[in-house]
């Protein structure tokens, strides 16, 4: 089989089997990429995954790009990425078309009103989970509070907050290093 087609199909498989993204994807990657194909070692995968989490973008996509690049360079990276998003594009297009056509039915409205309440809890749960990992000291707590309060009251693009937080991180890091140096 063509090597690129092979990469595409493997990552499409991972895409289909991932429910919910993020950590849910790790076991699928382990089975397909490490065990079946031998394209990466266990530790490499964990490394890629860790970097995928702290770089911009979707973790699953970042990990796919990494492995594709390692295998066949830039074309490999692109093919792996396309593979992992392919099932989503097909499935979601179908579902979105269905929902758009049935949205006006009262029963469907009730169903989605119920589901929305569940979504609130799911978001709350993931914020709590992320909080435990990302708010680790007084400074990160202060950043969290500032951004949260401002984002609730002011209606501006989140891009601004992300850039400001990055700058704050750089300044705080430099100040800490200076303080550490003086002692």
């Amino acid at each position: 089989m063509n090597k690129y087609l092979d990469v595409f199909i493997s990552f499409a498989k991972v895409g289909v089997m991932t429910f919910g993204g993020g950590y849910a994807m790790l076991p699928m990657l382990q089975r397909e990429i490490v065990e079946n194909k031998g394209w990466a070692k266990e530790e490499e995968l964990t490394d890629y995954f860790a970097i995928g989490q702290c770089t911009p973008g979707v973790i699953a996509v970042n990990t796919a790009t990494f492995i594709g690049k390692k295998l066949y360079g830039i074309p490999g990276a692109i093919v792996a990425t396309l593979g992992v998003i392919f099932p989503s594009v097909v499935i979601i297009s179908l579902i979105a078309a269905l929902i758009t056509n049935f949205a006006h039915i009262p029963a469907v409205k009730h169903i989605f009103a119920g589901i929305r309440v569940c979504v609130c809890v799911l978001i709350l749960n993931s914020v709590v989970k992320l909080w435990k990992k990302t708010v680790v000291d007084k400074i990160t707590l202060a950043i969290f509070i500032c951004v949260f309060v401002l984002a609730v009251i002011i209606d501006i693009t989140p891009v601004v907050f992300v850039i400001l937080a990055a700058v704050a991180g750089l300044i705080i890091g430099a100040l800490k290093a200076k303080k550490g140096g003086e002692q």
């Binding site: 914020v127 951004v147 949260f148």
Partner: peptide, 9 residues
């Protein structure tokens, strides 16, 4: 800096 901001957003 970005991690807690992302959680807050």
């Amino acid at each position: 800096g970005i991690r807690p901001a992302s959680t807050a957003l």
